[in-house]
């Protein structure tokens, strides 16, 4: 459900940037989304369809780069992808870690004319 608010915020940001660049049309929006945010790309796509109607970003293609939830083990210092129901380090079985990626939610770039 938060995809509606997130899509609206994303569109506002894109339109602001496009306006700054004096663009007439936004052709593509490149998004980076961390897995931990739980943002569903299909939902963003869906909401974008009607929120962008009548704006210069209407019909822009959305591309999603999904960043897996990644942890660094405080025991052995190795990086690993956090598994869904088992939060232990696959190298040393430790369970003390720092989340280093997976919370991203940003606009990487836009393609404009």
């Amino acid at each position: 459900m938060h995809e509606l608010a997130i899509t609206q915020n994303m569109l506002d940001l894109v339109l602001e940037q496009a306006k700054k660049a004096e663009a007439r049309k936004v052709g593509r929006i490149n998004l980076v989304i961390g897995e931990m945010t739980g943002v569903v790309d299909g939902c963003v796509q869906f909401y974008f369809g009607f929120l962008s109607e009548g704006t210069i970003a209407e019909k822009a293609a959305l591309s999603f780069t999904v960043v897996p939830t990644t942890a660094r083990c405080r025991g052995c210092d190795k990086l690993f992808k956090l598994k869904e129901f088992d939060w232990t380090c696959p190298y040393c079985q430790g369970n003390n870690m720092e989340i280093v990626a997976g919370q991203e939610l940003f606009v990487e770039s836009i393609e404009v004319e």
Partner: peptide, 14 residues
């Protein structure tokens, strides 16, 4: 033309 944005989607909320 590609424009680098690199901005948080929820920056305005922040």
């Amino acid at each position: 033309m590609e424009i680098k944005v690199l901005k948080d989607i929820l920056g305005a909320n922040e």
